[in-house]
């Protein structure tokens, strides 16, 4: 792998982590509208999974 390809991979990984952290930290802001949208479209399981994680039986 060339040095520039390595550099590109590194920036990709860092960008993905930053997006993950941004979503994690702003969860209370986007969660109600996203779960609402999923419920309106009949995706109950997805909505419950997103809201409660694996703890939802």
């Amino acid at each position: 792998m060339t040095a520039s390809a390595q550099e590109l991979s590194v920036f990709g990984i860092v960008a993905a982590i930053l997006v993950w952290w941004a979503l994690k930290l702003t969860r209370p802001l986007w969660l109600p509208s996203v779960t609402g949208w999923l419920l309106r479209h009949g995706r109950v399981k997805w909505a419950m999974r997103l809201r409660f994680g694996k703890r939802c039986h």
Binding site: M1, T2, A3, A5, Q6, E7, S9, V10, I13
Partner: peptide, 10 residues
């Protein structure tokens, strides 16, 4: 496995 570079260091 990797050549010296930023990905290896990461």
């Amino acid at each position: 496995l990797l050549a010296d570079g930023p990905l290896k260091s990461l």
